[in-house]
Computed example of a mutant assay.
Amino acid sequence: MMQLSMRRALLRALTAAGVAFALPASSAFAADTLRVSAIPDESPTELQRKFEPLGKYLEQQLGMPVKFVPVTDYAAVVEALGAGKVDLAWLGGFTYVQAKLRTNGTAVPLVQREEDARFTSKFITARDDIKSFADLKGKRFAFGSPSSTSGHLMPRFFLGKEGIAPDTDFANIAFSGAHDATAAFVAAGKVDAGALNASVWDKLVASGKVDTAKVRVFATTPPYFDYNWTVRGDLDVGLQAKIRAAFLALDPAKPEHKAILELQRAARFIPTEPANYDGIESAARAAGLLK
């Protein structure tokens, strides 16, 4: 902050002395600290664990402090990005669309995991009598967050394609708030079935946090674009380029990079663009989740 104050004081002094400046439309200076947030699609402790080595890497690559800013729900990330309270955010496809609308199209999706070009959601159950979508009628069902792409929007969209109208065909709809919570709901019998993203499901299985002898996948969605790292549009363009380059430079052949990528459940990061999420926006409008 002292460095920024000194710059501002120098600017005021030079202006008073009659020196004119032409500042760009974007932020005049890069932020002193990069403020990073993420949709809370997993528990807060898990999000912090995943971010810590990535944050240290970004500090080294960018030459500036990086601070993780936790939020309570998906909507809070969108609002924080739109209000300029965070600079970089890990968003799902749907929350990116919401951020784009909230910022009048200025939010910039920089990179996505290679896996996010063909992402899927899993439908899970612990009941023996649920083997197909038709068997869900009259049952209790759990989505994740209402703003989740892979935990709500796309499962709801594909349920519609299968002739299931969740609001009328399910006995009850619960929103667990996060993918791991949805799996816990199903395992505990709080609901009869649920939907969560394939990446979290695979992680829960690999870590032994879900018993596949009791909870099983009975359907998988077709692929769609999902998560990305997005910056606020008025962030210094030079800093945007450095952030993108830092993600693209992560190399799984390097042990220190491989550890970061594994925590992010990424083979590698690739560039992305707004057009990749047009299908998500169309699905959201078709499902009545965007006006």
Rank of each mutant, 00 (worst) to 15 (best):
P109L: 09
A75D: 14
E46G: 01
F269P: 00
A286G: 10
D169L: 10
S27K: 11
T106K: 07
K291G: 14
R7Q: 15
Q264S: 09
T103H: 07
E42W: 04
Q112P: 00
D41T: 14
G92I: 02
S147H: 14
S207T: 15
A241C: 02
T103F: 01
L289Q: 10
P65A: 15
Q3S: 13
R244P: 04
R265W: 10
I173Y: 05
A17P: 07
N228M: 13
G92Q: 03
L101Y: 06
P271E: 12
A259N: 01
G151Q: 10
D169I: 03
S5C: 14
A259P: 00
R156Q: 12
R49K: 11
P40W: 08
A187T: 15
T95V: 09
T272Q: 09
L4T: 14
A267H: 02
A259G: 11
T221E: 08
G279C: 04
Q98S: 10
L235R: 03
T212I: 14
I270C: 01
D202G: 11
A83W: 04
E52Q: 15
G177F: 00
E42L: 10
L10R: 13
V86R: 06
L54C: 05
E273H: 12
D73K: 15
P146M: 05
K190T: 05
F133P: 08
S37N: 02
R140V: 05
I260S: 08
L153G: 00
P109M: 04
A193G: 08
A126H: 07
P109Q: 10
V66Q: 13
V77S: 06
P65R: 14
A38I: 04
F218Y: 03
R232P: 07
S207K: 10
N172W: 05
S43G: 11
V19S: 09
D128G: 11
Q3F: 06
L261K: 05
A28G: 06
P274I: 13
G18F: 02
F123L: 11
Q264C: 10
L250T: 06
D41S: 13
G163T: 12
P166H: 12
V36C: 13
L248M: 08
R216A: 14
D234Y: 02
P53H: 07
S121E: 08
S43N: 08
F269Y: 15
M6D: 14
T106H: 05
A13V: 01
L62M: 12
R140F: 01
A283M: 04
V215G: 10
D202C: 03
R285E: 09
G189F: 04
D169N: 07
L248E: 02
F185E: 02
M1I: 00
A253Y: 00
A9M: 12
R127M: 01
D211H: 03
P70A: 12
R118T: 00
G93N: 07
A286F: 01
A25M: 07
K190Q: 15
A16Q: 13
F123G: 01
G82L: 02
V97A: 11
E115C: 00
D211Y: 05
L81S: 05
A206T: 02
H257N: 15
D87K: 02
V111L: 08
L58H: 12
F123E: 07
R102G: 09
G163R: 02
F51D: 07
P44A: 10
L153T: 13
R8F: 05
G144E: 13
T168L: 11
W229C: 07
A31H: 11
L159N: 09
L11I: 01
Y57G: 00
K242L: 08
A126R: 15
